[in-house]
Amino acid sequence: MSVIACASGKGGTGKTTVATNLARLLSANAEVHLLDCDVEGPNDHLFFDFDPTEQEPVEVPLPKVDLERCDGCGVCSDACTFNAISVLGEKVLVFPELCHSCGVCAYVCPRDAVSEEPRTIGVLTHASEGTMIFTGGELFPGEPLAPPIIQAVKKTISPGNITLIDAAPGTSCPTVEAIHGADFCVLVTEPTAFGLGDLQMAVGMGRRLGVPLGIVINRCNLGDDRVEAYCHEEALPILARFPLDLDLARCYARGALVVDHSEDWRDRFRQLGNAIKHGLKGGG
């Protein structure tokens, strides 16, 4: 039905809080699919009692050189823009962490000596709880490339559900990969210098991707009006203003969902849900 992404330039502004609580609230009346696309620091699963869970590896192709056929011509290493393959005398070194799995080396090899074999760089986790389905991705520590994991998570999106995506912080490849193609993107920020600076970059990214945007100002009482003024200038809809609140902070710290514990917060998230629906219809 609709794909809603939660992102932010700055980390620690409350993306996960928004995505998980919204998922819980919306799943009371509809099938919700929550995707954890913050694959370098996936935390959504900590807030639910998923059981049982199922895991599958995420693989990317990595070049493998047949030294019987290779004559050390070096065409592969000249063609590789990522410096992931290099020829030293009779040896060919492949650097898996630099490889983007583009396939150039295999294509250009004049002796057909380069093939590709799968390499595991992370895992997908599938789980469910009532009317909520969950898919999370996790990049193994030491692995650099998050986008293939995020793509694998997003391949599980099925039409008919409400899909909520929790994206990685920042405005570079992993964040872009997560929100690309979404119907709406909620940018969570805070009313501070860092919050505004990073929000401006996130808005630039969202607009470049052509995704409609709405803003949530978290900890709205700890800061000033610079983010409000920016949103006003840029005609960005402010979907919600969440106060700094001890109940919320405590729930978050312990891995609980504040909408399960507080009527006030249920109301706030209900209003946020409505504001997003309004935004999806092009009202925002």
Binding site: G11, G12, T16, E40, G41, N43, L46, E97, L139, P141, G142, E143, P144, L145, A146, A168, P169, G170, S172, P174, Y252, A253, R254, G255
Partner: peptide, 26 residues
């Protein structure tokens, strides 16, 4: 933030790393 390519680039050649942690489950 994170653990991916920019983090690995920042870490390469480092003689030490200070990890700033927040006391929460995440």
């Amino acid at each position: 933030a994170g653990t991916g390519c920019p983090v690995i680039a920042a870490l390469s050649g480092a003689t030490e790393a200070l990890l700033v942690a927040e006391p929460s489950i995440s």
